[in-house]
């Protein structure tokens, strides 16, 4: 906050309280992650012996050595990076264009289009019809199958529409007077004013694409096209005793390996946020909206 205002005693108490509470919350949220990291650097016997720790007694790089000794995981990360970047770009283009168009209530049938969108939040076709569609489109075993079926999130589209509604009319009007078409207004006025929203949904879509393994499971049969999350899922469910006994043929993965795969599979996407964070800074969208 730029404005300096005198702080009341109550406000000061609130501040102290606020800082401390947030620190505690943050701590509670990060400590388990420390365990995952520590566990990934520790040994099997230590993981079996100690229920929880954040500093391993014996430091071991074995899990990571294994992960990086095969091309699989690196390739999986490569696939995920590609799908995430390409997918996010496609998703943003679709969501922002459609969102902008639907933010204009003068558009004929505008309400119906929104109903069309909202209906899909509630009802979905299901796994088998979607699979048959993907097959008929010829997308099986193609990376497009990891992008197109989830290229838009109807919920997020609705939020984007609401954000676009808040763009001051006056700005758009003056651009139009300067001879801009709707396309021009969208490109020159609406998008530049919406950087925080773009950053937000870029992040949401990126996280969605990165985390998706189910589409890969259904549509990808060539394991060189497996995204890293499917590799993770496969390792995590190998010892799944919930649905029956563990298969004798399957050599159980080490616990530290599982944790290391979690680290390898999630840290890259975690790094996206700090990177985008500066776009969430105040004042990117002109404040005159609300006044």
């Amino acid at each position: 906050m730029v404005v300096k205002s005198h702080n009341t005693p109550l406000g000061r108490v609130f501040d102290v309280f606020n800082y401390i509470i947030l620190a505690i919350i943050a701590l509670a949220m990060i400590v388990p992650f420390f365990y995952v990291i520590a566990g990934s650097f520790s040994t099997e016997s230590e993981l079996a012996r100690r229920a929880f720790f954040i500093i391993p007694e014996t430091f071991s790089l074995n899990a990571y050595k294994y992960i990086f000794s095969t091309p699989t995981f690196i390739r999986g990360i490569g696939v995920s990076v590609f799908v995430t970047i390409a997918g996010t770009l496609i998703s943003l283009s679709l969501t922002l264009t459609m969102g902008y168009a639907l933010s204009k209530s003068r558009l004929i049938g505008h309400k119906w289009y929104i109903y069309i969108v909202i209906f899909t939040i509630i009802f979905q076709g299901g796994m088998i019809p979607t699979y048959l569609l993907i097959r008929d489109l010829g997308l099986l075993n193609s990376l497009w199958a990891l992008i197109l079926p989830i290229a838009m999130n109807p919920m997020w589209l609705i939020i984007v529409i609401s954000f676009f509604r808040n763009i001051p009319k006056e700005l758009e009007e003056s651009a139009r007077i300067d001879g801009c078409t709707d396309l021009g207004v969208f490109w020159k006025i609406a998008l530049p004013l919406s950087k925080p929203i773009i950053a937000t949904f870029a992040l949401f879509y990126a996280v969605q694409y990165w985390g998706d393994y189910f589409n890969a499971l259904l549509y990808i049969s060539d394991n060189s096209k497996y995204p890293v999350m499917l590799l993770l899922q496969n390792i995590m469910t190998m010892a799944d005793t919930q649905f029956g006994e563990v298969d004798t043929l399957v050599e159980q993965p080490d616990e530290s390996l599982k944790l290391a795969v979690i680290v390898v599979a999630t840290v890259p996407i975690m790094l996206v946020y700090p990177f985008l964070q500066k776009h969430f800074a105040k004042g990117m969208m002109l404040g005159s909206v609300k006044g």
Binding site: F214, A216, L217, N223, Y226, N234, M236
Partner: peptide, 13 residues
Amino acid sequence: FVANANYEDRFNV
């Protein structure tokens, strides 16, 4: 080969 995670789903499709 189908990744074992949810082999059933792939079997059904």
